[in-house]
């Protein structure tokens, strides 16, 4: 396998925050209890109104974040588009299902069905940009985005691709989220559940390239995803990359600060007693691809660092599953 390096050269997001990048932890909004909707940007600056009317919320958010990430990298068409989503295009899925049930399978139209497939956002971006390259969508719960990132990482490293547009998208679907509140998986404004999260939505995209530019945020050194966790894995992961534990200066953690996953995060943190830590879900809320926003914050943080701190490590898991590690190096 060749030793290509992989750089994050552009990023963009739609989240509960006001802007799409350049975040400052001290001024960022914090998540509210319950369900939080993403702040919708002015889409008409970036997309023609005729196509906007046909787009669902997830497609709009994804398209916008993708365009910002590419704009920043001065790239028109990427070689590949790889996305991750936990629940896919929920709004259209619910719309089609609800009409189906209400009308007993009568009077249905195809639009909602067409837009309900999990790869709608990736497909629509390809269509808009005329990108005939590789196009994958990962849908594996809380490692959906990490799976997409790993795919791009391996292809650039293995010289299958020179660059890739990678993103995570999840939208709030009112019925599904209400059901998840019934299942006590999402808090309500009134009630905190033992394993309830404060949920949100958003889209975050990255442009990855094998060449660094002056604008590069960080280098992605390695990614690891496993369905279970043992403590030795972190040390092995770092030593495989020839990095000592004390060289990791900051941690970005996908913790929902729940009792059920506390032990995973506290045992992780205990390995890095002096590292700075950021619990990014405080600023983006929980959704299956919230870790994409975590990577955005970590990449911006890495770029701004002036001291000797070279490495940033991201760790995400949910309910003891989908444990992912992403290792960044300052450019």
């Amino acid at each position: 396998m060749s030793k290509n390096t992989i750089y994050i050269n552009g990023l963009g997001s739609v989240s509960i925050q006001e802007q799409s990048r350049n975040f400052d932890l001290s001024t960022m909004l914090e998540i509210q209890q319950g369900i939080n909707l993403a702040k919708q940007p002015s889409y008409k600056d970036l997309m023609p109104p005729a196509s906007l009317r046909r787009m669902s919320k997830g497609v709009k958010m994804g398209m916008y974040a993708a365009k910002i990430a590419l704009q920043e990298s001065d790239i028109k068409t990427p070689d590949a588009i790889i996305t991750g989503t936990g629940l896919g295009c929920l709004i259209d899925s619910e719309k089609f299902l609800e009409l189906l049930l209400e009308n007993d399978e009568n009077h249905l139209t195809p639009t909602a069905f067409i837009q309900s497939t999990h790869n709608t956002v990736g497909g629509q971006i390809a269509l808009q940009m005329g990108c005939k390259g590789y196009n994958f969508t990962y849908v594996h719960q809380n490692s959906s985005f990490e799976s997409a990132l790993l795919d791009a990482f391996l292809q650039i490293k293995g010289s299958e691709l020179e660059n890739a547009l990678v993103g995570g998208i999840d939208e709030v679907g009112s019925s599904t989220y209400k059901n998840l509140q019934i299942a006590e998986k999402i808090n309500t404004e009134e009630q905190l559940f033992e394993s309830g999260v404060n949920a949100a939505e958003g889209a975050t995209f990255f442009f990855l390239n094998k060449e660094a530019t002056e604008k590069s945020y960080a280098e992605i050194l390695d990614i690891s995803i496993e369905n279970t966790m043992d403590k030795n894995r972190i040390e092995t992961f770092l030593s495989d990359n020839n990095i000592a534990i004390q060289e990791v200066g900051s941690l970005f953690l996908g913790s929902c600060e729940l009792a059920v996953d506390k032990e995973y995060f506290s045992s992780f943190e205990s390995l890095f007693p002096t590292a700075e830590k950021v619990l990014y879900k405080r600023y983006v809320g929980h959704h299956h691809t919230a870790s994409a926003f975590g990577l955005l914050l970590a990449a911006e943080h890495a770029q701004k660092q002036v001291c000797n701190e070279k490495y940033t490590l991201l760790y995400n898991q949910f309910e003891g599953k989908d444990h992912s590690l992403i290792l960044l190096k300052k450019c």
Binding site: T117, N119, T137, Y138, Q141, N227
Partner: peptide, 16 residues
Amino acid sequence: ANYLGLKGYVSTISTA
């Protein structure tokens, strides 16, 4: 994965 007792990389793809 649980049924098979598999511990490692587990993922899902959905491109219709």
